[in-house]
Design a protein around this nucleic acid. Structure first.
Lengths: 211, 211
DNA sequence: CCCACGCTCCACCTTTCGGACGATGCGCCG
DNA sequence: CGGCGCATCGTCCGAAAGGTGGAGCGTGGG
């Protein structure tokens, strides 16, 4: 019998995952929670599970400011509690997936996956095998083809402001640097992303979820 | 007994909605589908329901190109079959909500709504009452405060390409017009949106879900 | 009928952006 | 220590974008 924990802040989705799990003869839900903090507290409190089903978008637009994110929660669960984490989310950007995989997620599925695939993924995760949805694998391959060097912290900051629609002058004033510096960063950003202009860089940033 | 139809392309979410509905003594699921076409076919075929629970994001990133959208499906169901539609979606942008309401949706909820609120909304919808989640009401009020004139079809087309990171020259070639025309459209867009530059317009467009 | 209005189209001029150099100081690592 | 990457600043110049003004052209109201 596979013991499953559900961690998703959408009650409806939790109910759906529970229905899927309960529909399988070889697994059951042993805990259900809507926040990452609660999940960790339960595990710290001696809770045992074979698999944790976790929504990567934990804490998005939380009322009390930024809470614990899904990626951090994944890392903690995997490393501190040695429990496989199967990430199940709705709209996965490249960065989301990468974050989950890097954090040690055992699998990654989109919520539009059929129930059989989900059940199979849970069994694989419980067995310690890594499974990625077909969609996810395709995305990762796409990333491999165009590696795209990592941006520095400062460059990311500039890119964020560019994405928000600020001009070079506005960015310069906001970061207390000269316009020349902003342009320099932007030039590096365009080189690294393989883009030709600020707007194209912004588009790529959004697509890859680099915000 | 309230007869409910579930229309959502995410199997997990469908299962969740079914669990919520089945958990209520006064309602039941009479049909379940993953595509808008199937929903309409079922209704055309004589299917009767008191409420349709519908995901607005029907047909996003469908494999076979663009399929029937959630807003269109809403309009058809409401007008042709005189059946109340309760829209339940994950991330609602202003434009999504507006589209649903304009299409005649009886209610609009986000999927992170608690189950009791969902059950209440279903009963209200079955009774013909209009209910909008608190979150949704707040968004609509926000829109009222800053009306933002509507963009023409051509302007929207240009805005879409701008958001994709294209240059004026590229847009001009793509739309078979001169660069001057593209700039003119862009100027109007900036006036209507109250923005100062193409990137800022792109940012606003994303925020308001005008894609 | 005609005029106003919105959409589409375009040209001229100014500002901004992007590319291509180069240059400095700083921290890190073999 | 000597590279190496990062962040910071500068100049010059061509290209792109933005501002202003205006011209056709349908649709609908007076």
């Amino acid at each position: 019998m596979i013991d499953v924990v559900l961690a998703d802040d959408h009650p409806v989705v939790r109910a759906g995952l529970r229905a899927v799990v309960d529909g399988q003869p070889d697994m059951r839900v042993v805990h259900e929670t809507g926040t990452a903090e609660d999940l960790l507290a339960w595990l710290d409190d001696g809770g045992r599970a074979d698999v944790v089903l976790l929504d990567l978008r934990f804490g998005d637009a939380g009322p009390g400011g930024t809470r614990l994110g899904g990626a951090e929660a994944t890392g903690t669960v995997v490393h501190r509690h040695a429990t496989p984490v199967l990430v199940v989310t709705t709209y996965g950007t490249d960065a989301d997936i990468l974050a989950a995989v890097e954090a040690g997620a055992t699998g990654y599925l989109l919520k539009d996956a059929p129930t059989e695939e989900l059940a199979r993924a849970i069994r694989s995760a419980a067995a310690g095998e890594v499974t990625l949805g077909a969609d996810v694998q395709r995305r990762l391959l796409g990333r491999m083809r165009s590696p795209g060097e990592a941006l520095s912290a400062r460059e990311l900051e500039v890119l964020r402001l560019v994405t928000a629609g600020r001009s070079n002058d506005a960015i310069a004033r906001e970061l207390f640097v000269s316009v020349a510096t902003v342009k320099s960063h932007l030039a590096h950003i365009n080189t690294k992303l393989g883009t030709q202009s600020r707007t194209e860089a912004a588009a790529v940033a959004r697509e890859r979820g680099m915000l």
